[in-house]
Design a protein around this nucleic acid. Structure first.
Lengths: 333, 333
DNA sequence: TTGTAGGCGTTATCAC
DNA sequence: GTGATAACGCCTACAA
């Protein structure tokens, strides 16, 4: 059942049917009714491929994230999908993994789908250092379609970044711990991504501004898995620390487990702050103090921005969003 | 840059270019080389819309789930996406919510995209009772494209179901608790979906076969949120139970919190079993005994099956998969 | 082995 | 207000 069939049945031309489909004003109400009736009756649906071919768009946005099974990204994808759908867009999802090669491959493949825009979720896409950010493939992609980063920053034509101010958040979280008497604060992270580095900067600045030394032994990298973190900490008996700032709740919960295993009291003996304010943060005992980086806000702003860009409006290429420290029971300030 | 441009530059016809693109055997190696070179140089990519129009397929699978921010579904989507990509398919994601009307709407909208197949994740799509399963919209969809259910069962032409045997799993979990001396086991659930009902059946069968009464007061419905469950249990001081069988880990963790609040020892005073073996299950203290319903296996089997169906092969319309009880520290059997 | 021509189902630009 | 008709870019008989 195509536009010709409908035209024939309604006794009009395909042009008129097309106009009705697109609700053009220059069709008489009478013929509109007539054509609509025929369409209903035969439950006709315009062929999206044909339409796509003509308009060079299928109203589809590509979303790439390293791993949707990660809570943070799953939530982000959920927010994005909802907001995009409100605007009438569909989502193609691609989970790229964390390796540079796979990320480049993902971008390349998804671009072939002629998406209207591309969203990259997670700071892994923002590269490592400021100089060589390894993000040229993204700038290249931006020549074909607008690119939107969630929680990462890349400068370039046609690329837009919305990110949370992790440096600030880390600074004030760590400052809080220092001001409540902590002297040896462990920085616990699972990555060297853009946002992880920002958190590290905030951590170090807090130490420096409070006159504490920045020690290499107090920076620990691990997998973001509860038991993994617990065990790695248990294995380093010699390492002394009275507080932990983790860049993800999973690692913070691992630290809670470690404290239990060693009989340490939280927060008296060990103060802990997580990141992301995920479900996990209210599962452990005591419940985690954690940084909420307002994923929903980031996502909604990104989509709203995108719609403006697609409409040809001017838009800021860089939007920082403030984090919120959610105080629960693993800190005493 | 389209097929005509490439043809002109390579000094061949568009038919030949098309053959090269599709790696047809009836092109001489020499012209293949030549054409490929030109394509590389201009980094030509065939227009997927045009191809879709001709072939009536864009190699895209629709995935609908009620909510990707839910851990179980996020994992499922992740597994599905990976497997589908191995076969060269893309995924369109749609989060429908749980309301019947929205689910129907989601299916209707995604069908318009002319996907090659549809996957429905979660037993909410399988309806409630055996008689009126409210799934006619799915059978209707199956007239247009093959439909695959993950963890739900619907009978119908062109619909395929892969599901875990939740009745069995619930039966043996609850039996374990009874045999270790529990007499009043609370059934805690957040839904009346197909799989939730199966779990309830298993729970009731275990009680009956062990000579225990099936009591309405011991069936409790709640939201799948840690604090919500804790508070609802605290609010029912009069309710007596010595074990809890929860249909999701989130509610089981809520029960752990409840036990802490009341000073109950786990598992001595209260034995708890969760469901899904999610991240949450190792976050609380003590860690949860839980049922692993092998989501990865369900997903992989679904995709493999789908590929056979798309190739016109015959395939079983119904595949049950066994669950595994993961024993941790909230039970004593 | 290669080329020509028709079809896929729209939208958009003209005329009328 | 409505109707022809030409794109859109690819695939694939059929012909050579």
């Amino acid at each position: 059942m195509n536009i010709y069939d409908i035209a024939k049945l309604a006794g009009v031309s395909i042009a008129t049917v097309s106009r009705v489909v697109n609700d053009s004003p220059r069709v008489s109400e009478k013929t509109k009714q007539k054509v609509r009736a025929v369409m209903e009756e035969n439950d006709y649906t315009p062929n999206v491929f044909a339409r796509g071919l003509g308009l060079d768009s299928m109203k589809t946005i590509g979303i790439i994230c390293p791993d949707v099974s990660d809570t943070y990204m799953a939530r982000a994808v959920s927010f994005l999908e909802h907001r995009l759908r409100e605007y009438g867009y569909d989502c193609i999802l691609y989970c790229s993994g964390y390796q540079q090669e796979k990320k480049e491959n993902a971008v390349e493949l998804i671009l072939k789908k002629r998406i209207d825009a591309l969203i990259l979720v997670g700071s892994t896409y923002a590269g490592h250092s400021e100089e060589d950010d390894g993000a040229d493939y993204i700038r290249e992609a931006a020549k074909k379609t607008p690119v939107f980063l969630i929680n990462g920053k890349i400068t370039g034509e046609n690329v837009y970044s919305v990110y949370s101010t992790d440096e600030d958040a880390a600074y004030s979280a760590v400052s809080g711990m220092i001001e409540s008497g902590r002297k040896r604060i462990l920085y616990l992270s699972d990555s060297h991504s853009y946002s992880a580095n920002k958190k590290l900067e905030g951590y170090e600045r807090a130490l420096r501004e409070h006159g504490l030394p920045v020690l290499g032994e107090l920076k620990l990298y691990a997998k973001n898995q509860v038991h993994y973190v617990r065990d790695i900490l248990l294995a380093r008996r010699a390492l002394v620390f009275d507080a932990v700032f983790a860049t993800d709740d999973g690692m913070a919960v691992g630290t809670v487990k470690y404290a239990h295993a060693r009989g340490l009291k939280i927060p008296e003996d060990l103060s802990i702050i997580g990141y992301n304010n995920s479900e996990l943060s209210v599962c452990c005992e005591p419940e985690l103090t954690t940084v909420d980086n307002t994923g929903e806000k980031l996502c909604n702003m990104t989509v709203d921005n995108m719609m403006k860009v697609l409409n040809g409006e001017e838009v800021s290429q860089e939007i920082p969003v403030k984090c919120i420290l959610v105080k629960r029971c693993t800190t005493d300030f």
